[in-house]
Each structure stands twice: as C-alpha cells, then as structure tokens.
Nucleic acid binder design. Structure first.
Length: 568
RNA sequence: GCUGCUGUGGCUCAGAGGCAGAGCACGUCCUUGGUAAGGACGGGGUCAUGGGUUCGAUUCCCAUCAGCAGCUCCA
C-alpha cells in the first residue's frame, strides 16, 4: 500500500472501531479517529474506561461488521442539517463549528454515520486483518485542560502476512529498546527509588561516552570552538536576571538554601557562558566567539514523561553559544548545520527530520529582527541543501530555531540537534561589543546543541545499532578466547600485543570454547580471537567476527593491520 | 501532571487468603573442551512502602512511591 492507500485503509478501520464501540456502548460520545503513521486510533468520551474484556468484545464486534461487508457511502449535507444530525455528539459539534465551508461530508456504513472528510475505502469487508493494540488516555484536542478521552489504537492490513510482519516488528523493537539493551550490555542503570530520571553510567557505558566526548571535543577544537567549563549551581539572582525563574520555573529543581544565600541547580548553561562573555569588553573583531561545553543540567520533568535515557531529569548537553553580529547568523548557522551533518553521519544517521520554527504569538525582540533571523536560518538550510519543514509559530519566545529529530526503534522522533537564535538574553545581560565605528552594539546569541543530550543521544544510538556499536565505539573491541586453560599464557602474550592498539579483554573462565563464543556474541563484542594448540604452535590467532563467524587465521600483526584499515 | 496497566531473589516471570517457586545469573567442585549454552551441588526473597479488612494478608481493599503504554510538555 502506498501512503494514500494506507490512510484510506486505516481511516476506515478507525470508523469500524467506532462503529463497534457505538454498538456496544450507545451512550459513548465520539471524538476523532484518524489514520496515523502506523495504523489508526479513535478517541471516545465515556465515564468508565475500557476494560480488557471490553476490548475483546469490541474486537469481536468489529469482525462482525467486517463480515457483513457493509458499503461505505459519502453524504454531503448543509451545515445546518449536519448540526441537527450531530445534536447528540458534542465533540463532533465542536469540530463542525470550526469548519468554514457551507456543506460538510459524512461517511455512513450501515447504522453508523460519522462527520468526516474522508476519503475511505469502498466497503468494510476490505479490512481483512486487524488488531487492537492498546488503549490510552488522551486530551480532547490535545489540551490538558479539556476533557480526558479514552483512545484505542489499532493496526490493520489486507494481507495476514503484513499484520504478522508488523507484530513481529513490534516484538523486535522491544528487543532493540535501549532500556533492555542497556541492562543486558551492562551500559547504564536507573535507580528510581533514589531519584527517577537520573542516569548511572556503568564502566562500559562510561567508556563509550568517553569516546564520544573525546571525539566531540577534538572536532570542536578543530572547527573553531573553544571549550569552557562552568559550575552546576549559581545564586538564584542569576536566574532571576536571565528570566528563567519566570518563564522556566516549572522545569527547575527547587532552590537550595545555604547560609544566607539561595542557590539554583542549573537547567541551562547559557547564563554561565554569558558571565564569561561579560568579563571584558569585546570587539566585532573577536566575532564569532564560539564557546562549547559538555554541560550537565537538571530539569524537573513531570513523572509521566520520563523515559529511559530519552527523557531524564539530569543530562549533559553538548552545548555551545555563538556570539556574533546579525549579518553573521547565516554563515554561522551553515557551519553548525555542516557540523550536524558531519556528526550525525559519523554516528550512522542519515534519516532525520529538520524543522524551522518561526515566530510564536508571545515573543520578545522586534518583528524586524525575527524576520531577518528567520530568513537567515531558512537561507542557511537552503544553501546546505537540507530538506526541512516549517513549524509556524513554534519558535521559542526568544527567537526562531531549527530542530533536528532522529527516530528511535518505534519510529518515535527525538529531538537531538537544535539551533536557536536568542534576542532576549543578550538584552537582559546587557551584552555589548564595540563595532567598527566605535559604537556599542548588542550581539546576537546562537544556542546550539548537536547531539542534544549525551544521554538521549546514547539511547538513540543504542537502538540505532541494536547494541552492536561500530568498531570505533565498542567498549570492548576484541575478546581473546583461549580454547582451554593450557592456552592462557599464550593468550596473555596475544593480549599484550592487541591491547596496545585496541580495547581488548581475555575470557579466562573455565568454560568450553562454545560457551565463550556464545557469550561474546551475546555481549556484541565486534571481534573474537581464538587461540589454542594450533595458534600457539604457529604463533598465530584465529579471528572471528560478531554476527558473521570465522574469518581466518592470521598473525597478530596481520589482524591489527586489517582492523586498522577496516579491511575486514 | 492526566488515563489505564503493573510492582514476587541480580534478571525474565509463575503462584496462591494458611511453611515462597522456576529458568537464567551468582558461588563451590568436577570437567580442559576447536567456533553460539558441559555436569553436580549450593547461597540468595520483610512478595515496592504505609494503612485497613481478617483468627491469619505477599494474595482482598485504600493510599503513597515507582515502572510501563499513550496524552500534554520537552534535549
């Protein structure tokens, strides 16, 4: 099915769901029921939520409706007539109010009728195989102040094999889940009883993190950034000055009282970088100033939004702040975008979405500055040839931004890179530079993060690679497996050679070689080196690759050469 | 934060109103094995926490905390 066919198919599936629910629960009020990227849902308003038994009955009733192969017909009526038809459906009426046209369309299948733009497939019998996946609460119109609806999600396909395939995908996604793999591969843990949303990096995870961070720092230094380091807390007056105690308060940890002072754990790094900026008078000749920091911030997130490494309460941003003039924005953003492409490419990502968010209703700065900055961001995107979508009105109040989102194993999108122009903070801190004519001007501040948060990025990375980190990132690159204890001494001499070049371990357990191989494969070590009588006699090593099997027997020098030149 | 579901050894999960179970992992011993699990024995649990019902609660009820799915919000 192409996308349009899918949409029809799933949209009609959602109508069948609503049809069944209406039949079983006549008093229920209908919300909306669209096709989504993977399947469909329908929102209902009812007093008591659906039970698992209800779900089974609904499923049975849907099969009934499908079996009857009821034709789906489109009906156009005047808005007044529609109002009459929907008098018992308050939510539908609300939607109707919002429609501008004079005539609206309904779709009818048997005794079920729904205000709907369509399109739909011809008949309910075309829905061959479906499964209701789960229920959840949602807010009417996505507004947390409005009614709470009960949502039922489902998926359907014309062929059984497609449904089976999709269910298998869901199962595999679970195995790919960074939370499962993180525990299995001994990368990190959480200890919610001592604070939810806080990450404990185990030795292997911390090693991968170090590799990422070292690489990140090296590249930044090469690309004209300077590194800075700043504290984790500061007097609350700093946050009053930056405005965070006002507009960001609900995301901040509670203040810490100490002696006669009140300190605040930092939710962002920018005010600190600004303090560094203000330690002396800057000139246009210094620009652009690019300061980068792996800065750990703490944000209070609502309990229900926490999710493994992806959404946490303490995380390290790969942050940087660029101080420049308005005319430098475009060039700087191009450089950042190039850096984004470089980093994401290095980590194996090519499938991501880019959004340009423009001026929201509430904003600071002049509309003229917004216009210029937004154009600069758009031009930068165009010049780098990156496809993007506009997200009108979704900018932060202090400036327009570019967001880049990467998908996880369940197709959920996670924002990693972000580039934000800020008109607010330079004003608040009275930032100045001396321009060519000797006058004082206020610089533009660009906030940017490429990986976003190290925690989230690591989570996406684990899922992306299914735990099979590429050779350069693998915490343990090579494991030496002696056939028996007799070969331990030789294994040690092989280790001595390899550990000069790669992260190498020996499996010294008194297990059989099959077991050692199985465990090394399970633990996703990229290469295994097996040594026994034959190897010891010939002064060689047998090389085995994760997921592929035996490669051959070579001298240690040969293997090192091959691994270094990626010729395997 | 909202709605629903869930909370039993390190992990995955069974279980039942009346002495708490399995597999894996862990420990000891035996085995020295050539490309994905060798064998025997053993240790380990206030059944999330706090109340209530009951002769008796890990099991039933309530609350709290936390996890999961989704919604809203976000890196």
């Amino acid at each position: 099915m192409d996308n349009e066919q899918k949409e029809r198919y799933w949209h009609t599936s959602s109508h069948i769901l609503a049809h069944a629910v209406k039949k079983l629960f006549p008093d229920i009020k209908l919300g909306t029921g669209p096709a989504i990227e993977n399947g469909f849902y329908y929102d209902f308003f009812l007093e008591t939520p659906f039970t698992p038994a209800d779900m089974e009955n609904i499923s049975k009733e849907m099969k009934n409706i499908i079996r009857q192969n009821i034709p789906v017909e489109k009906i156009s009526v005047s808005k007044d007539k529609a109002k009459e038809m929907l008098k018992d459906e308050p939510f539908k009426l609300e939607i109707l109010e919002g429609i501008q046209a004079d005539t609206v369309t309904f779709y009818r299948q048997g005794d079920f009728i729904d205000l709907c733009e369509g399109p739909h497939i011809q008949s309910t019998g075309e829905i061959k195989h479906f499964k209701l996946l789960h229920t959840a609460a949602s807010y009417w119109r996505g507004d947390e102040n409005r009614e709470s609806m009960q949502r039922i999600y489902g998926i359907s396909f014309p062929e059984k094999k497609d449904l089976d395939e999709y269910l298998l995908f869901l199962k595999e996604a679970k195995e790919r889940d960074h939370r499962t793999l993180g525990a299995k591969l001994d990368l990190f843990s959480l200890h919610p009883e001592y604070g939810s949303g806080l990450i404990f990096w185990h030795p292997k995870g911390a090693l991968v993190r170090k590799i990422i961070e070292d690489f990140w720092k090296d590249v930044h230094l090469q690309k004209g950034y300077e590194l800075v380091n700043t504290p984790h807390i500061a007097d609350i007056s700093l946050w009053e000055k930056s405005g965070h105690t006002g507009f960001y308060q609900e995301n901040m940890f509670a203040p810490i009282q100490m002696d006669k002072k009140v300190f605040q754990l930092k939710p962002m790094n920018c005010p600190f970088h600004i303090l560094i900026y203000n330690t002396k008078l800057r000139s246009y000749r210094d620009f652009p100033i690019r300061w980068a920091e792996l800065g750990t911030v703490y944000r209070y997130e609502k309990q229900g939004v926490l999710h493994g490494l992806m959404r946490v309460r303490g995380f390290t941003q790969d942050d940087a702040h660029i101080f420049c003039t308005e005319t430098q924005i475009e060039e700087e953003v191009i450089k950042v975008l190039e850096l984004v492409t470089f980093f994401l490419g290095k980590f194996g990502f090519s499938d991501y979405k880019i959004f340009l968010s423009t001026m929201p209703e509430k904003f600071v700065g002049s509309p003229d500055s917004w216009e210029k900055a937004t154009t600069a961001l758009g031009n930068a995107l165009k010049k780098t040839g990156m496809a993007y979508e506009e997200d009108p009105g979704e900018g932060v109040f202090y400036g327009p931004k570019i967001d880049i989102k990467i998908k996880d194993c369940l197709n959920r999108e996670w924002q990693c890179s972000t580039i934000q122009v800020d008109f607010n903070i330079p004003e608040r801190f009275d930032l100045k530079y001396t321009d060519t004519d000797g006058s004082f001007k206020t610089p533009i501040l660009i906030h940017r993060a490429i990986l976003g948060s190290i925690e989230r990025f690591f989570g996406v990375l684990i899922e992306h690679y299914k735990g099979n980190f590429p050779f350069w990132l693998a915490p343990e690159q090579i494991r030496i497996l002696p056939i028996s204890d007799k070969h331990l001494a030789y294994a040690e001499t092989v280790l001595n050679i390899f550990e000069q070049h790669f992260r190498t371990q020996i499996d010294k357990r008194g297990e059989k070689i099959n077991r050692k191989i199985r465990d090394a494969e399970d633990e996703k070590v990229p290469y295994m080196i097996i040594v026994g009588d034959k190897e010891e006699e010939n002064n060689t090593a047998a090389l085995r690759k994760h997921g592929e099997g035996m490669i051959g027997t070579f001298t240690a020098e040969d293997i090192i050469q091959k691994l270094k030149t990626s010729k395997i």
